[in-house]
Design a protein around this nucleic acid. Structure first.
Length: 346
DNA sequence: AGATATGATTTTGT
DNA sequence: ACAAAATCATATCT
């Protein structure tokens, strides 16, 4: 009969139920029922298994945490953010002087993400605590009418925490995604490409066309070009890589440019209007473009000595017309600065 | 607006 | 490991 009443409680109004509960607690048979329940429980031995006490420490969660920390989202307050932004700036390799404005924008957006993240985290924390205390109260209350071991309460709390931490993980995940998107938007160097200064381009072109037979500047030459042009050594390398491939792909297109820059170095001699034939050198390999027809290759004999530019080449170092002679490169195994790239965080 | 130029990154080949 | 080649993504021109 009493059991029937207990089951019935669920269908009644709160006040009614409360009253009934009180009545039950005071019922003279209650202690007997309680001890019976204890006995049953003891017999069935449905006690908590002590398994899965140690958490496996999800590696995915660790990665997310690490990233959030590294990006300054999860770390200490304002300082962390600044440090992260500075680190990101350094990592992106931008020695560009105009980057501060973009970065302030980036930092602002990051701070927003950070704020939302922390607000949500706190909300979850609070909800978790609330829920936990609620459940604990409930269990404590119930322990008056049925046997509840402290272990069981602990276990419930553990379950609740696990549940909430999985929700937290979702939050972390989406925060990480947001940060990644932000990064790619603002810090991917390709997205804010700036053309080099006129002066730098001129410098590079001058070197390229005056070393057309072997346009592979040494490390030292690159350093000098970089310094003079106000760009990095890596950018110089990129430029030459691009230039070589694009030049040989379409020599015709570059003839005008070639004339400009070779004339520049050969000003002293003639102002002859007849343009020189395109230089084809061994470094261009057998690749001929659609616009520089096959016969160009037939004309490509050993690098024709460019008398005018020879002087210039010589003054620049042993890289100009040195193809035939042995000294192509000076020994340089010292890697100065690796090309910076955006770190792959995920 | 679309075509071309250009700096940077990724893939490929040796 | 290095350079060529391909590709990406933005800048600049028309």
């Amino acid at each position: 009969e009493i059991l029937q009443q207990i089951v019935g409680i669920a269908e009644q109004s709160l006040d009614e139920a409360q009253a009934k509960k009180h009545a039950l607690n005071c019922h003279r048979m209650k202690p007997a029922l309680f001890s019976v329940l204890c006995e049953i429980k003891e017999k069935t031995g449905l006690s908590v298994r002590s398994s899965q006490e140690e958490e496996p420490v999800d590696p995915q969660l660790m990665r997310l945490d690490n990233m959030l920390l590294a990006e300054g989202v999860a770390g200490p307050e304002k300082g962390g953010g600044l440090v992260a932004a500075a680190a990101a700036a350094a990592a992106s390799g931008g020695v560009s002087p105009d980057s501060s404005i973009e970065h302030s924008d980036y930092r602002h957006k990051l701070a927003q993400i950070r704020q939302i993240y922390h607000a949500e985290l706190e909300k979850y924390e609070q909800a978790c605590n609330e829920f936990t205390t609620h459940v604990m109260n409930l269990l404590r209350e119930q322990s008056r009418t049925r046997p509840v071991a402290p272990r069981e309460i602990e276990r419930m709390v553990g379950i609740i925490h696990r549940k909430f931490s999985s929700i937290q993980m979702q939050l972390k995940q989406s925060t990480c995604e947001a940060v990644m998107i932000l990064r790619s938007r603002f810090l991917d160097a390709r997205r804010k490409r700036r053309n080099f200064s006129k002066q730098a381009t001129e410098l590079l072109n001058e070197y390229f066309y005056s070393h057309l037979s072997n346009p592979y500047p040494s490390e030292e030459a690159k350093e000098q070009l970089a310094k003079q042009g106000g760009i990095t050594v890596c950018q110089v390398s990129n430029w030459f890589g691009n230039k070589r491939i694009r030049y040989k792909k379409n020599i015709g297109k570059f003839q005008e440019e070639a004339n400009i820059y070779t004339v520049k170095t050969a000003m002293s001699v003639t102002h002859g209007t007849q343009s020189e034939p395109p230089v084809t050198a061994p470094w261009m390999g057998t690749c001929t473009s659609s616009l520089s027809p096959p016969w160009v290759r037939l004309l490509s004999l050993p690098a024709p000595p460019q008398v005018e530019s020879l002087r210039h080449s010589m003054s620049q170092g042993p890289y100009g017309e040195g193809l035939a002679s042995g000294q192509l490169y000076s020994p340089r195994d010292v890697r100065v600065s690796p090309c910076p790239s955006t770190p792959q965080l995920l």
